[in-house]
């Protein structure tokens, strides 16, 4: 059977520390002002603010990046086939083909794609991360690729490797013995906005 790469994020474990978010910027050479992976606070108005009234308060964290949907709306709308579904189930972008029309951003119900409105600004002012991270330029869209440059070499996405809470898991959803498949099964993995029919390959367990 072909592979279907997916991720499981354990919200019981997530502490909202942003380590995965910074790791993503580092590994993938993401410029200032842009994120492929964000940590949303399920709570009050600000980052880390809870809902409710002290001391009856509640807070949760939701790490959010490309859901690598099986039925990906971004792939369907891309007029130049820059965004595509790889054989192993990842939603990837051929940055050479992207024309910057941003249809994909409009189509994505998860708001996880970012556009290079300007020449990318990096501090420090050079390309960082893995040497073979695909380069992007002004005028194109980018997003989480499950660290394609790493996964292609049999490694885990960097966010999975660094997560201090060990909350992130990556693997082949089609392999019933894989950690991710087992977690989805035993912990009743949930998908975001299931009603949209996008069939995300990122699952959350709580």
């Amino acid at each position: 059977m072909t592979k279907k790469y997916g991720m499981v994020i354990d919200l019981k474990r997530c502490i909202g520390c942003h380590t995965c978010e910074i790791a993503c910027k580092l590994e993938n050479d993401v410029p200032m002002g842009m994120y492929w992976n964000r940590i949303l606070t399920e709570g009050g108005k600000y980052m880390d603010a809870p809902k409710g009234e002290y001391p009856n308060v509640q807070r949760g964290y939701l790490p959010l990046a490309c859901q690598h949907c099986e039925n990906a709306p971004c792939v369907k709308v891309c007029p130049v086939a820059a965004t595509y579904k790889s054989e192993d189930g990842r939603v990837l972008i051929n940055y050479e083909r992207c024309i910057g029309c941003r249809y994909c951003m409009a189509a994505c119900p998860y708001n996880v794609r970012v556009f290079n409105w300007q020449e990318p600004v990096r501090i420090p002012d050079f390309d960082y991360g893995s040497a073979d991270t695909p380069k992007r330029k002004r005028g194109i869209v980018e997003k989480c690729s499950f660290c394609e440059q790493r996964v292609n070499k049999g490694m885990q996405p960097f966010c999975v490797e660094v997560c201090p809470a060990r909350a992130r898991h990556f693997g082949d959803l089609n392999d019933p013995s894989s950690e991710v498949a087992q977690l989805v099964r035993t912990r009743k993995g949930e998908q975001l906005l299931e009603d949209r029919g996008t069939k995300p390959q990122v699952y959350y367990v709580r």
Partner: peptide, 20 residues
């Protein structure tokens, strides 16, 4: 949070289908 800025959803869905 994710619905922010996604007003145009729908009209463009299916342009290329799953052909890629």
């Amino acid at each position: 949070n994710f619905l922010k800025g996604t007003a145009a959803v729908g009209t463009t869905v299916g342009l290329l289908g799953v052909s890629t």
